[in-house]
C-alpha cells in the first residue's frame, strides 16, 4: 500500500460522474457512430426514397408539401427522431442501472459527489450520445442534394437538444422507479405515438383538428420543425426562437425535476 492519495473535493463533479459513462462509450463509440450513420442511411434508402417516389407521384403531394420533395421532408425529421429514440432509451434502462442493478449511483454518492453532480453527469452523457447520433444523421443528409446545406450543422445540435428534452424528464421519472415494468409502456404510449403523429412523416395539418394542439405540446414537433426549417429554410426567426425556447424549457424542467428525484432516491 504505497500509493497515497490526497483528500480533496473536486469542483468538476459532473465530469467525474460522466467518466464512468465515458469509459463505456469509448469502448463502444465506433459501433455507436456506425449505428448513427448506417441506420438513418437505411431508413432514407428504405423509406425516404421508396415511399418518397410514391408520395411525389401521389395526388396530394403538391398541396401538402409544396415544392419540397417527400425525401427532404422526411429526412430532416430524422435529425430529431433518431436522437429522441436513442436518448429516451438511454434515460430508461442504462440510467435505471445506476440506481438498481449496478448501484453505481449509490457508490458515487458515498464519495464527495452529490446528486446534482450525478444529474449533470448523466446530462453530459446524454448530450455526447445525442450529438454523435444527430451528427451521424447530418453526415448522411449531406450526401443527398435535396438536404445538403450548412443548416445541417445547427440542426444537428437541435437534434441533440430534442433528445435532451426527452431524456431529462424521463431520467427524473426513472429515478422514482424501483422496477423497469413501466418502461415499455413509456416507449409504446409516449415515444412511438409522438414519432408517428408528431409531424415526422407528414405535416400535422393532416391530423384531425383536435389532435393538432396535442402535437404542439410535444417537444418532438418543435424539434422536427426547427431541424426542417434550418435545413430547408422557410421558417421565420420568431418561430425558430419559439421552437428553441420550448425545447430548452423541457430540458430545464427535466433538470429541476431530476435534481429533486435523484436527491430523494439517493438520500432518502
Amino acid at each position: 500500500m504505497n500509493v497515497t492519495v490526497q483528500h480533496r473535493i473536486s469542483s468538476w463533479g459532473p465530469s467525474r460522474v460522466y467518466l464512468r459513462d465515458w469509459i463505456y462509450f469509448k469502448r463502444m463509440w465506433w459501433s455507436v457512430l456506425i449505428g448513427s450513420i448506417v441506420q438513418p442511411l437505411m431508413f432514407l434508402l428504405g423509406v425516404g426514397l421508396g415511399v418518397g417516389e410514391l408520395v411525389d407521384q401521389g395526388p396530394e403531394a403538391a398541396n401538402v408539401l409544396g415544392d419540397t420533395s417527400y425525401f427532404a421532408f422526411y429526412a430532416t425529421a430524422l435529425l430529431a427522431t433518431t436522437s429522441m429514440f436513442v436518448l429516451a432509451q438511454e434515460s430508461l434502462w442504462p440510467t435505471m442501472d445506476g440506481f438498481t442493478w449496478s448501484n453505481a449511483h449509490q457508490a458515487m454518492i458515498s464519495t464527495p459527489l452529490n446528486a446534482t453532480d450525478i444529474v449533470f453527469g448523466k446530462m453530459l452523457h446524454y448530450a455526447v450520445r445525442g450529438i454523435v447520433t444527430s451528427g451521424g444523421v447530418a453526415l448522411v443528409l449531406a450526401l443527398f442534394a435535396d438536404t445538403r446545406s450548412f443548416g445541417l450543422i445547427p440542426a444537428a445540435f437541435v437534434g441533440m437538444l430534442t433528445g435532451l428534452a426527452f431524456a431529462m424528464p424521463i431520467a427524473a421519472w426513472t429515478a422514482t422507479r424501483t422496477t423497469d415494468n413501466s418502461f415499455p409502456a413509456i416507449l409504446r404510449f409516449g415515444i412511438i405515438p409522438m414519432f408517428l403523429f408528431g409531424g415526422a412523416f407528414y405535416p400535422i395539418e393532416q391530423l384531425p383538428t383536435w389532435l393538432q394542439p396535442v402535437a404542439w405540446c410535444t417537444p418532438l414537433w418543435h424539434g422536427v420543425e426547427l431541424c426542417r426549417g434550418l435545413v430547408l429554410g422557410g421558417l421565420s426567426l420568431g418561430a425558430g426562437l419559439g421552437h428553441l425556447a420550448v425545447l430548452l424549457a423541457f430540458i430545464a424542467a427535466g433538470i429541476l425535476a431530476a435534481r429533486v428525484t435523484f436527491e430523494r432516491r439517493l438520500r432518502p
Binding site: 415511399v51 410514391l54 401521389g58 401538402v64 409502456a185 408517428l196 403523429f197 412523416f201 393532416q206 391530423l207
Partner: peptide, 21 residues
C-alpha cells in the same frame, strides 16, 4: 398494450401517408 402499437402505426398511416400516396 401490444395491441396498441400496431394500431398506432396503422392509424398514423391511414391519417397521413395514405392520403399522400
Amino acid at each position: 398494450s401490444g395491441f396498441f402499437e400496431p394500431f398506432f402505426y396503422l392509424l398514423s398511416i391511414r391519417i397521413g401517408l395514405s392520403a399522400l400516396v
